[in-house]
Measured scan of single mutants.
Amino acid sequence: EQLARLKREFNENRYLTERRRQQLSSELGLNEAQIKIWFQNERA
């Protein structure tokens, strides 16, 4: 579920704002660094 949600977010926007990253962190139970790194890896 977390992965599917991250992929949906990535398809909508390849870059997250700090606020959006905080929201996802709270909703998915991941820390902000994990989300940031995931997005960086997807863009690579």
Rank of each mutant, 00 (worst) to 15 (best):
Q22F: 08
E27G: 02
E12S: 08
T17A: 05
E42R: 04
E9G: 01
K36L: 13
W38D: 01
L16F: 03
N41Y: 09
R8K: 14
Q40A: 11
E32N: 03
N13E: 03
G29K: 05
L16K: 00
F10G: 01
R14G: 09
S25P: 00
A33I: 13
Q22K: 15
E12M: 10
N31A: 14
G29N: 06
L30Q: 00
Q23E: 14
R8T: 09
I37R: 11
E9D: 04
E1Q: 11
R5S: 09
R8G: 04
F39M: 10
R19A: 15
Q40K: 10
F39N: 01
E18Q: 14
N41C: 15
N13R: 04
I35K: 00
L16W: 04
R19L: 12
L28Q: 02
W38M: 04
Q34L: 14
Y15L: 07
L3F: 07
Q34F: 15
N31I: 06
A44M: 13
N13F: 06
A44K: 11
A33T: 14
F10D: 05
F10M: 02
N41G: 06
I37F: 09
R43L: 14
F39Y: 06
N13P: 01
E27M: 09
L3N: 05
R20M: 12
N13M: 04
L24D: 03
F39Q: 01
Q34D: 14
R8M: 12
R20C: 06
S25Q: 03
I37G: 06
L6I: 03
L3W: 08
I35V: 07
L28A: 03
Y15T: 10
N11F: 10
E12D: 11
W38T: 02
Q22V: 11
N31G: 13
R5G: 07
L16R: 03
G29I: 01
N13H: 09
E42S: 04
N41A: 10
R20A: 08
E32C: 06
A4S: 05
S25T: 05
T17Q: 03
K36P: 01
L30V: 08
A33W: 15
L28Y: 02
R19S: 14
Q22C: 03
R14H: 10
R14A: 12
E12I: 09
N31R: 08
L28D: 00
E1P: 04
E1F: 09
I35F: 02
Q2V: 15
L24W: 02
G29A: 04
Q22S: 07
K7L: 12
Q40C: 00
L6S: 03
A44R: 12
A33G: 08
L30D: 04
G29H: 05
A4P: 03
Q40L: 09
I35L: 07
S26G: 07
F39W: 15
R21V: 15
E42K: 03
Q34P: 01
L24E: 01
Y15D: 05
N41Q: 12
G29Q: 04
R5K: 07
L24K: 01
E32G: 05
Q34S: 10
L6K: 03
N41W: 08
R43Q: 10
Y15E: 11
R20S: 05
E42G: 02
L16T: 03
K7V: 07
A4Y: 05
E12L: 11
E27Q: 07
E12W: 13
I37Y: 08
N13D: 08
E18Y: 08
Q34M: 14
N13Y: 09
N11P: 00
E27Y: 04
R14M: 11
E42W: 14
R43V: 10
R19E: 15
Q2P: 03
Q34K: 08
N31V: 05
F10Q: 02
E12T: 09
N11C: 15
F10T: 02
K7Q: 12
T17F: 03
A33Q: 14
R14S: 13
E12F: 08
E9T: 01
L24T: 00
E9W: 02
N13A: 03
R19N: 14
L24V: 01
N41T: 09
N11Q: 14
S25N: 01
R20F: 07
G29D: 05
E1D: 10
R21P: 03
E42V: 04
R19V: 13
Q22G: 04
Y15W: 12
L30T: 02
Y15I: 11
N31L: 11
E1K: 05
N11W: 09
K36H: 15
E1T: 07
Q34G: 01
F39L: 04
A44C: 14
W38S: 02
K36E: 15
I37A: 14
R14P: 15
E12P: 00
A33N: 14
Y15F: 13
E12A: 09
K36A: 15
R21H: 03
